[in-house]
Amino acid sequence: MTPQEINALLSAACFAGLAGLTLLGALLAALCRRLIYSVSGLALSFIGLAGLYLYLNAPFLALMQILVYVGAVCIVILFAIMLADTQDEQSGRDRRATLTAIASFLAASMLAVALFLMIRGTTWMAPAAPQNTGSLQDLGHALLGRFGFAFELISVVLLLAILGALVVARNGRDTPRD
């Protein structure tokens, strides 16, 4: 084999491995009956996704994916599970569960068919040429320049979320004065 062929093969193998990792994690998250396995699967899926970003030559995004999603989101979910009652996490199957399963299967397959038809019917555009080299500087300029307004709006949303959390937490703590 020529070096180009080997490179292409290695590249395809990397992609398949990372996509497989992401899918495996997602399946674990969706199918496991124990919540803690689901969160671990979610973390695995996030790490696979970070690998895919790395594969697409976006290392900053990959590292942020791990830092934010594995380091914060998964930990907060896990924290909530540990603090919550762990007795009812293995709820048994009953008759309604089978009905729910059939209904969700039907809904999911309809969605899948619709998506398949849409994918077949669409004429795909050629992949856009990269706007910049995707370096940290470019990202910073894009975030604070071209997408500055969206960036600021997101920070307002986050601020509101913090205030909302404070209000909710404060409400329960107040003792009636009169």
């Binding site: 791990i66 830092l67 594995v70 998964c74």
Partner: peptide, 9 residues
């Protein structure tokens, strides 16, 4: 820093 986050998990 991002690998350090896995430690907590």
């Amino acid at each position: 820093f991002s690998f350090g986050a896995i430690n907590i998990f």
